[in-house]
Design a binder for these strands. Structure first.
Lengths: 158, 158
DNA sequence: GTTGAAAAGTGCTGCGA
DNA sequence: TCGCAGCACTTTTCAAC
């Protein structure tokens, strides 16, 4: 009998309520969260520790507006891989390109799909023509440039 | 004479070093950052306050692994809009769909590009067939399902 | 598992250089 | 503009429920 990895669901509504608050503002004091949810500060701490050990929490990150520090361009790249190319090898090479901030192995039109952040059009051209083209196994790519990021949020837990 | 909005670049290397550390771990104490960068804790505080006022900092967020809380599917959606449809109207409708976590107005193959997080295939089907199809102005969509998120990070400041 | 309070560490705010 | 020092607050821990 195969054991189901059910520990993923050993979180209750209190845990979810805590996560919801910290996902919006990671600096919110435990003491305030405790007041909101009518439990003690110690409980928040215990729950957070449990979820960290369970690996549910990836971390707390300061998020900046890339445009305000000179990164004006956000682009998506649909990547077609050559046949017989190991996906892992392409990932290893692409991960060395710092402008690639997200990479997915996908079904559908493309083999892989990447999100790229660049300073300006010159920078983007350099990344596409020099960096990406140098990756072995990439047959061709298709570029979508984001003119506006209209929505950006995390999933709403329930 | 048009005044150039040059205040975007009123940040120096110290500011960037602070951001770099907090982007990795938003809970890192100012006092430790100060030790690393060989300045006082007060300086870190002043710099952070300045950058918050400048609007460089979006916020601090707790980031979770969606899969560990039951959200197993990540998909991208290329959206074709009907001609004559106001982009803003489509955004307003799509923003009501909580599963849409990112939305871009793009050049290239698609009019818009969305990232969607769902619990399972049933949930995804519901979102695509019921929620997305109900949005006025969407002609058709193309779905890319992410089988693996190989890279996920923020831009590396320099 | 939760509580409440004590102990340790951090963030914030003046004043001085 | 930066650094130092004191105060207020938060996190963390732990015995008791």
């Amino acid at each position: 009998m195969i054991k189901k990895e059910a520990q993923n669901f050993e979180i209750d509504n209190l845990d979810i309520d805590i996560l919801k608050q910290l996902m919006v503002d990671g600096t919110k004091p435990y003491s305030e969260i405790a007041k909101d949810l009518i439990v003690s500060g110690g409980t928040i701490h215990v729950r957070m520790k449990k979820m960290q050990e369970m690996g549910i929490i990836e971390g707390t990150h300061l998020v900046i507006h890339p445009q305000k520090v000179g990164y004006d361009i956000c682009a998506f790249l649909g990547i077609f891989l050559e046949k017989g190319i190991q996906y892992k090898d392409a990932v290893a090479q692409l991960s060395k390109i710092k402008e690639v901030v997200e990479l997915h192995y996908t079904t559908g039109t493309y083999s892989m799909f990447a999100k790229i952040i660049c300073r300006d059009t010159n920078h983007l051209r350099h990344v596409l023509n020099e960096e990406i083209q140098a990756v072995e196994g990439i047959q061709r790519t298709e570029t979508l440039i984001s003119l506006e990021e209209s929505i950006k949020r995390q999933i709403e837990l329930s």
